[in-house]
Simulated scan of single mutants.
Amino acid sequence: MPGLIDVHTHFMPERVLDKVWAYFDAAGPLIGEPWPITYRYEEERRSAVLRAFGVRAHTAMLYPHKASMAAWLNGWAADFAAREPRCLHTATFFPEDGVGAYVREAVERGARVFKAHLQVGAYDPNDPLLDPVWGLLSDAGVPVVTHCGSGPVPGAHTGPEPIGRLLARHPRLRIVVAHLGMPEYTEFLDLADRYPEVRLDTTMALTDFSERRAPFPRSELPRLAALGDRILLGSDFPNIPYPYRHQLDALEALGLGDDWLRAVCHDNARALFGLPGE
């Protein structure tokens, strides 16, 4: 395998990331338990660490928790992608006036992946304000990594039902369900069976940390194997309470084989984003 492609890593403006880390340090209500940040480094060192791990491409997952943030975050993310060649240009959005215009601008500037965080943003993906966004991203074939599962605690608009309604209207939308849909693993696998453009990332799923509170049902391993061309490596780096390698060890421990691992850790994302092969 020539390296790893990680579709769920976080790079944000420093003052935003500081607030995120402070929330983790305080074991905020969406966490509910101590959550030490393993890779609490400044930006350049975090990029270097990923390179040292063999990560050939990664994202800069960032997201607003209120209106009037997303366009500013998108500007920062465009600059970050320009100075970090391994980063897939990432963008985000929020249901607000003008969202269609700044999402279109991000796509025209080269955004290759978007992040939607339904839990932190506390919005319904079916909000009418987002109708032009989903149509644009569906037509453009730009993936949207979406925290839509109800882990670590349910939100007002998490779970498979809101995303299911969205996909019924936009069946070609390239939703990447973060965290394998934790804890509604089965229901999100059902959506992947129904919609061929739905993918799932592995972020924090199957690790010892997550298995204690939301174990992946071993009865679903055959379905995880069968969907092997639509499972993508995600890690949540740097905001993880264990070493990066543990995510990889957890995937290998499933015993689904080298071909499955290579597809998940590299080939599927390379195909999705049209990255050069080796």
Rank of each mutant, 00 (worst) to 15 (best):
A269N: 01
R212L: 14
E197Y: 14
I240W: 04
R218A: 12
E161H: 13
P162L: 13
P222D: 04
P154Y: 09
N239M: 15
P241W: 06
L191I: 05
L275S: 01
A253S: 14
P160C: 10
L137E: 03
S219T: 14
R230E: 03
I175F: 04
L232H: 02
P241D: 03
R223M: 01
L251K: 04
V144I: 13
S235C: 04
E161P: 00
L173D: 03
L206T: 02
L206K: 08
D249I: 09
V144S: 02
T203E: 07
L272E: 01
Y244L: 13
R172P: 00
H147L: 10
T203K: 07
M182Q: 12
E184V: 06
L166G: 02
S150Y: 10
V264F: 07
G164V: 11
D236H: 01
A269C: 08
P171W: 14
A168M: 10
R218N: 03
P238S: 05
E161V: 15
L167H: 03
R199M: 15
G135Q: 10
G255H: 06
V145L: 15
D193L: 13
A253C: 01
T158N: 10
P171C: 13
R223W: 05
E211D: 10
L261H: 10
I231A: 04
R199D: 02
P215G: 06
W260T: 04
A226N: 08
G141E: 12
L227M: 10
S235V: 03
G151R: 12
A225F: 13
G155H: 11
A156M: 09
